[in-house]
């Protein structure tokens, strides 16, 4: 049974008067890599916790391959691997002991675990570190070990909450590589992330959440072509404000101004670029629009925390 499907209908979570999730529908077919995106407080982590049966939903239904959550959450979790946002490895144990102890929670035989652990260490790039203490590991190593721990039951659905937050680019690439390989084996991957390049790279499909609702859903490429102009010119420099005052209409289809940078979205930027050639005080970059542009257009540029 490689790959589990996930179906969520009308999911609601309220804490008193405050609604954190307000009627979410999601369909993740088996074998897909699916991203859950949204600013802080959008309801991503609460959604994941409800999906895993760790938080009681106020309303709505969740099914993982036909198992009803939370009632059958335990059966479902036998087949799920979870990589939490915060590392919660056991600091009293060595690397190998962490995997062994965790595997026992699934009721896995010690003999099977002893076979599996070297392979997991290799996957995490921790071969030779089996007897190291957790305190001796770098942040990236801990993250990789947390991923290896999530795989100890050979899961068919892997749920990752911000898997690469706080990692350096090298470590991020290692995690991405592992996730791609697992996805190629047919396992369903569900991840939340703040990194749009990560989502664009890894996810077959994704949903952008805000204020507890899905506000956009689809393939990353489709979302970009559907929801935003294809090209963007970023303009910045000291005289930006003055230059903007006397900018003729129609040169920029749509613009956003943030952090003293002008983001000019459109299809053809010929006129704008010609103007900018004659304004050496301003610097500019032209690039294709990205998922981040879509995200910021939909959720705004204001801070959320």
């Amino acid at each position: 049974m490689p790959g589990l499907s996930v179906t969520i209908r009308g999911l609601v979570k309220r804490y008193g008067e405050q609604a954190v999730v307000r009627g979410l529908d999601l369909d993740i077919p088996a074998g897909e890599c699916f991203g859950l995106l949204g600013p802080n407080g959008a309801g991503k982590t609460t959604t994941l916790k409800m999906l895993l049966g760790l938080v009681q939903p106020t309303a709505g239904s969740i099914a993982i391959n036909g198992w009803q959550v939370p009632v059958q959450a335990r059966q479902a979790r036998m087949r799920i691997g979870i990589m939490p946002q915060m590392d919660n490895l056991d600091p009293d144990f060595t690397v190998a002991e962490n995997l062994l102890v965790y595997g026992r929670y699934f009721g896995i035989d010690r003999a099977i675990l002893n076979e599996r652990i070297p392979a997991l260490l290799e996957l995490a790039g921790l071969t030779g570190k089996a007897d190291s203490r957790i305190g001796e590991l770098s942040g990236g190593m801990k993250r990789r070990l947390t991923l290896a721990r999530a795989l100890v039951n050979d899961p068919d659905l892997i749920v990752l909450d911000e898997p690469t937050t706080g990692l350096d680019p090298q470590a991020r690439h290692v995690i991405w590589q592992s996730l791609r390989r697992l996805n190629q084996q047919g396992k369903t991957v569900l991840l939340t992330t703040h990194f749009m390049d990560e989502a664009e790279r890894l996810c077959d499909r994704l949903v952008i959440m805000d204020h507890g609702l899905s506000i956009a859903e689809g393939r990353p490429r489709d979302l970009i072509s559907r929801l935003i102009e294809p090209q963007v010119v970023e303009v910045y420099g000291d005289q930006l404000a003055a230059w903007l005052e006397q900018l003729p209409d129609g040169v920029c289809e749509r613009h956003e101004l943030a952090d003293e940078t002008l983001y000019c979205y459109g299809h053809d930027h010929g006129a704008l670029l010609a103007l900018l050639q004659r304004t050496p005080a301003l610097r500019h970059v032209q690039r294709p629009s990205s998922l981040e542009d879509v995200f910021l257009k939909l959720t705004g540029r204001e801070l959320r925390d």
Partner: peptide, 14 residues
């Protein structure tokens, strides 16, 4: 503090 329970709860344990 150590969040050991959080880790255990991610396994099929209640």
């Amino acid at each position: 503090v150590q969040k050991t329970w959080d880790a255990i709860l991610n396994a099929p344990v209640m």
